[in-house]
Design a protein around this nucleic acid. Structure first.
Lengths: 250, 250
DNA sequence: CCGGAGGTTTGATCCGGATCAAGGCCGGAT
DNA sequence: ATCCGGCCTTGATCCGGATCAAACCTCCGG
């Protein structure tokens, strides 16, 4: 396991505050591996043996039932996933597959459970991470239950823009097919609705989005801090680097 | 604050393992209050000043946006809610109102944040609680995205039955109106679909449900451990008493 | 005992979004 | 360069569930 990778992981909110010796204990028996795109990393229902940290690339978390499938979140470097399952030592609720060629660190979940009992700072960081993940899924559930698909799309675009520092034009970070599934609709519906939003302040050019009239788009989305705004960095554990869909840790 | 109430709270998984002195610290400045039915206890967006523990009664957690409203969970005695918001010291994402006359303990969230830094056992209990809540919302989100309303209703009835030890007949725990909102549909749709399920092994008599043919009902619901089965008691913190919709802690 | 308010049911209709089907586009492999 | 497969779009149609409306039931207060 390379030094510069370890120090990059060390900078994650989850690992930043723990004691050096405990950090070393945690990553004893951990290993990094490069995976090609499109590979299934974990399958829902499997025992939670490893916490996964994405060092490079992108990973999709998805759920399946009765032959249907939907994507629940996308984890970008540097972020971790399936923390909650590891902590409870219970089966994964979601599957994960690489979207790009990715480098993933696998941390034995037994290390995890052992270390946070000994290192209070790490325990606090875990608490903060889990609380943040929980709040992020609650937001997602609220959005699914309260907004229709036009509103979800408009709000998603505005969130993206906010995460890019308010830029008006930016590339969509994932395939539209995936985006549709994440937002809880079919690709056809996404395609049509994006078209429809052209008369409401949004222009789509291939995989690029341009907000042409923010006020009109906001009139559709009706942005709400309690759904759309990510939590500010928590006071508990310093800054928060988690990405746009940061609830990816179960 | 009465002794027998304190000892009942002490038995909750969240508080069971902490040191007695820290338990006392935590409940210093806490108070109990009895509220009538239908009262709003917390409003989404308010600062998270108190962890709430339901000692008696039932509380609905619900979310609102743009004039619409939906119920996210129901918390029964003895259970707590809005833990995650208190820990992060951030605004509540959901509102809460009493369904029945209820007795609620309010624990200052500053106590909470102070104590779990000092008491590792309590920190572990909080981690376990949050991880459990997180997994419960993920289950809820999976259900919303993967099952249609007929399947959600059938699965809900089977979960209820399981929580009653497998009984075939039992009363519905809440108004149908609430149930519909929790399951993400209108009351009309719930009513009609319950009727439709009479040819699939379910009989509804007023507020009482009777499973007349479990196999047929299961054929509709296609129960799945990764959606329907609550987590077994975690190895971290002893038994788990959380209720049917146990993800009510943000 | 009556009256009223809210919850529930039922019916009729509407609409958002899914499904089915076909073409077009782009990118990677040969 | 060309072929092919997956993604994206567009169109036509279908269906699940929402909405609107009205009757009913039930519980509670006067």
């Amino acid at each position: 396991m390379r030094q510069h990778e370890l120090s990059e992981i060390r900078r994650l909110p989850l690992f930043r505050t723990m004691q050096p010796a405990h950090f070393d204990d945690l990553f004893l028996g951990a290993y990094v591996h490069a995976f090609p795109a499109g590979l299934e990393l974990v399958r829902q229902g499997d025992p939670a043996d490893f916490l996964h940290v994405v060092v490079e690339g992108q990973v999709e978390l998805y759920a399946g039932w009765a032959g249907r499938e939907c994507t629940m979140a996308i984890v970008r470097a540097v972020g971790s996933f399936i923390l909650a399952a590891c902590i409870r030592d219970q089966p994964y609720l979601m599957s994960a597959r690489t979207l790009d060629r990715s480098r993933i660190v696998l941390v034995p979940s037994s290390n995890l459970r052992a270390v946070f009992r000994r290192d209070p700072d790490f325990a606090v960081a875990v608490i903060d991470e889990l609380a943040g993940c929980y709040r992020a899924v609650v937001r997602h559930a609220k959005e699914l239950k309260l907004r229709n698909s036009r509103e979800r799309i408009a709000a998603y675009i505005l969130r993206l823009s906010a995460s890019m520092g308010g830029a008006a034009g930016f590339p969509l970070p994932v395939e539209k097919r995936l985006l549709a599934s994440y937002l809880g609709m079919t690709p056809e519906n996404l395609s049509r609705t994006l078209r429809l939003l052209e008369s409401h302040g949004l222009k789509i050019d291939g995989s690029r989005a341009i907000i042409t009239d923010r006020a009109r788009l906001a009139a559709v989305a009706v942005p709400d801090n309690l759904i759309d705004r990510p939590d500010r960095p928590s006071p508990l554990a310093g800054g928060n680097l988690t990405s746009d869909a940061p609830f990816a840790k179960a």
